[in-house]
Computed example of a mutant assay.
Amino acid sequence: MSRIAPLEPPYPAEIAAQFDRIMRGAPPLMLFRVMAGHARAWVKFRGGSLLDRGPLSLRDREIVINRTCALNWCEYEWGVHVTAFAEAAHLTADEIRATVRGDADTPCWSSAEQALLAAVDALHVGATLSAAEFERLGAHYDADQILEIILLCGFYRTVSCLANALDLPLEPGAARFPA
């Protein structure tokens, strides 16, 4: 159980409609149920959502999210994303494992993906990119994509803090970190 109690069904109509839009008919995640019980937090949380069709490919978006969650030891959110998006993002088992156990230079990644992962790692460690890291990223991604990468890293660090600090139980059926 979460350290802050989640909403339990039946949900208020407006919250139920929001859950349906987000989850497309699947039961809402524990994280969403906890956040939705606190109006201000729920509004702010939903306002930061970056799962729309942004400037990054689904694959790049999921690499950023999975790596950010792994660096923050957030098995909860990492598992949700691997389960929900890895297949559609064409992430192989080796690539999924490398988001947790590899580094930016792991050979399964393309040169663009290595630059992407190096940027995620740098943002995690120092909350910035050196000139060389920014230039390397810029060789593969335009300004809109770079801003999206930075936003994703920040948002999913926040999501990781929420899931970890709330001690959310892992979602049933969600992927687990590789051994």
Results as ranks from 00 to 15, higher is better:
V43Y: 05
I22C: 08
A84S: 15
T106W: 10
A175Q: 03
I150W: 05
V125I: 08
Q145M: 11
I96D: 00
A143P: 04
L162R: 04
E14N: 07
I146H: 06
I15A: 05
L7E: 09
T158I: 15
R53K: 12
G173Q: 09
P12R: 07
A131E: 15
Y76I: 04
L71N: 04
R101N: 11
F155E: 12
A84L: 12
L51P: 02
A36W: 00
V34D: 08
G126E: 09
A127N: 04
E135Y: 11
S110H: 08
R97N: 14
A39W: 02
D142M: 07
I96V: 14
E62Y: 00
H90Q: 15
T68S: 11
E113V: 12
K44I: 10
R176V: 11
Q114T: 05
D105R: 03
L137E: 02
P27I: 02
Y76W: 10
R61Y: 06
V159N: 06
E8F: 05
G126P: 03
P27W: 00
I146K: 06
T99K: 02
T128E: 14
P10K: 11
R157K: 12
G37V: 06
I22K: 15
L71V: 08
A139N: 13
P12Y: 04
G37M: 01
C153H: 08
T83D: 02
G25L: 09
H90D: 12
Y156A: 08
P10V: 06
T128W: 10
G154P: 09
I146W: 00
H124L: 02
V82Q: 12
E148G: 00
E77V: 07
A132C: 05
L29Q: 05
E62C: 02
E77N: 07
E77T: 08
R97M: 08
P9F: 04
G47A: 14
N66K: 03
T68C: 07
I150S: 03
E87F: 00
V125G: 08
D167C: 13
L58R: 00
E62F: 00
W109E: 08
A163Y: 02
A139E: 14
A26K: 09
W73C: 13
A36I: 01
A36T: 04
C108L: 09
D52V: 05
H38S: 01
Q114V: 01
